[in-house]
């Protein structure tokens, strides 16, 4: 049902256990309506993402609800630059596809810390008119951050009419500074801490144009030039110490299980 209902830009909330699991938002990377499946891509960063990654084919997760949030606004802008950073490439892909289907010309810039962490390159190549790949360590593509090629693209004779940027908060912040300088309207997709994902808790709120907005119901996409990224990054770190502890406990526990076998 989620596969049928979802549109680009929307997300789901998943949980590993109904008794004790935490609820984490993941943006949908794609769907197969006939098979009734959706595609999620995540990176091990904490306990729940690690547990999800440790599941085997055929395993079940306790709960998944969605599609949540408002879909991306897709129209024929003309030339569009799409910038993905790390795991942000996953939610960006369905948007790129929808933009392409609407007749936009697409320049994609995708980056990752290193070659290993780069995902969906083939898919981006297939849907983009131009693709620029960067890695922080230079292990693949251009060495450096995505902001560099973004600056070049924005400075070209024909600058893009619209930018879409999805990735870590810090990367979105700096990309928005670039596009603002060049006057290119920019959509970002935010992945804040959430509990219910339906507007009930307000934990995901951000400061947008000086006002509080809920990412789960007002977003997840916003005009990146109006988002207070500094505050958002601090809110993302609200439970940093506890999360680290939980992750360590889990790793330790997993190692012990490994020893028993």
């Amino acid at each position: 049902m989620i596969a049928r209902a979802r549109k680009p830009g929307q997300f789901v909330i998943v949980s590993i256990s109904n008794e004790y699991g935490e609820r984490i938002p993941l943006t949908i990377a794609g769907a197969d309506t006939e098979a009734g499946t959706i595609r999620l891509i995540w990176q091990r960063v904490g306990k729940t993402t690690a547990e999800l990654a440790d599941l085997k084919e055929g395993d079940k997760i306790a709960s998944i609800v969605g599609p949540l949030g408002r879909p991306t606004h897709i129209e024929k802008f003309g030339l569009v630059v799409c910038v993905g950073g790390g795991i942000g490439n996953a939610p960006l892909l369905p948007i790129v596809r929808a933009l392409k289907d609407t007749g936009n010309k697409i320049i994609s810039i995708i980056g990752a810390r290193n070659k290993e962490l780069l995902v969906l390159e083939e898919e981006f190549k297939a849907t983009s008119d131009e693709l620029i790949v960067t890695t922080d360590d230079g292990s693949y593509g251009r060495k450096g951050l995505v902001t560099e090629p973004l600056k070049e693209v924005c400075g070209r004779q024909r600058p893009p009419e619209q930018a879409f940027v999805i990735g870590p908060a810090i990367m979105m912040k700096f990309c928005c500074e670039v596009t603002k300088e060049f006057g290119v309207p920019t959509q970002v997709s935010l992945n804040t801490i959430m509990v219910d994902g339906t507007g009930m808790c307000g934990g995901c709120r951000i400061e947008y144009d000086g006002q509080a907005k809920f990412v789960c119901v007002d977003g997840p996409e916003f005009d990146g030039h109006k988002v207070n990224f500094d505050l958002m990054m601090k809110r993302l770190e609200a439970y940093k110490d506890q999360e680290r502890k939980a992750h360590e406990q889990y790793q330790e526990h997993r190692c012990k299980i490994g020893l028993d076998e």
């Binding site: 008794e19 004790y20 935490e22 306990k47 509990v195 808790c201 506890q242 999360e243 939980a246």
Partner: peptide, 21 residues
């Protein structure tokens, strides 16, 4: 949010099984 974390998500058991801080 405070009550949902504490009640439904059992944050009072964080580190003792519960994953929600």
């Amino acid at each position: 949010e405070y009550l949902t974390r504490a009640n439904l998500m059992k944050a009072y058991d964080f580190g003792k099984g519960a994953d929600t801080p």
